[in-house]
């Protein structure tokens, strides 16, 4: 019974969470806290914190977390399955349409108009990560600007452009650098 409730609940979350990221939060909160009481408000806040500390989209994190707490491994599998099924079906249909019609002039034009905007959107995601990383009170901050983060960014960007290192290697490298720097100078709460 629990499994069916989890499945039904996360099917809805999967279907109605448009826009990605935190746009899905109110919907997840409604299902998980208000409707079913699977998590308390405090546990939900913890879930958001965990999601920031672990990889993966928030909706999938929520499904795996709530599912596991309510019904163990079967629960996390079922809830995650529910969460990805509706988007999977819809995006597969879109993929079909894209392959079929992307040679039409109208669609080609629409996509050509859209591409620069996508670059702008990705840049804005970068901007928000940079601002939260630089404007941060840590042990290496001067007047609210985290000097270590700025230097680490500049060094990393230089390394990436010059030696074309794999991004995952770069991200891991900066993680270790952060671990060393902030263990010595003290870090902040994210």
């Amino acid at each position: 019974m629990m499994l069916i409730k989890l499945l039904w609940s996360f099917l809805q979350i999967g279907l109605f969470s448009i826009g990605g990221g935190y746009a899905a939060l109110p919907l997840i909160h409604e299902q998980v806290v208000d409707l079913h009481g699977w998590l308390t408000d405090v546990e939900f806040a913890d879930l958001v914190t965990i999601s920031q500390m672990t990889p993966g989209p928030i909706a999938i994190n929520a499904a795996s977390f709530v599912g596991a707490r309510m019904a163990g491994i079967p629960g996390s599998l079922i809830a995650t399955f529910g969460c990805v099924l509706p988007p999977f079906i819809i995006i597969s249909i879109l993929a079909r349409l894209y392959m079929k019609y992307n040679s039409l002039d109208v669609i080609k034009g629409a996509l050509k108009g859209l591409r620069p905007a996508v670059v702008g959107l990705i840049a804005s995601a970068g901007f928000s990560i940079i601002s939260s990383s630089w404007l941060n009170e840590t042990g290496t901050s001067v007047y609210g600007v985290d000097i270590a983060a700025v230097l680490l960014f500049v060094a990393t960007f230089f390394v990436m452009r010059k030696w074309k290192k794999s991004p995952i290697l770069v991200i891991c490298g900066t993680g270790i650098a952060g671990l060393i720097i902030y263990s010595i100078f003290g870090g902040a709460v994210i």
């Binding site: 920031q52 500390m53 970068g126 990560i129 940079i130 939260s132 990383s133 941060n136 840590t138 983060a149 680490l152 960014f153 990393t156 991004p167 770069v170 991200i171 891991c172 490298g173 900066t174 993680g175 270790i176 650098a177 952060g178 671990l179 720097i181 902030y182 263990s183 870090g187 902040a188 994210i190």
Partner: peptide, 11 residues
């Protein structure tokens, strides 16, 4: 601390 550092890499 690991995540604080990784933010620089991600940016």
């Amino acid at each position: 601390y690991l995540l604080l550092g990784m933010q620089s890499g991600v940016s």
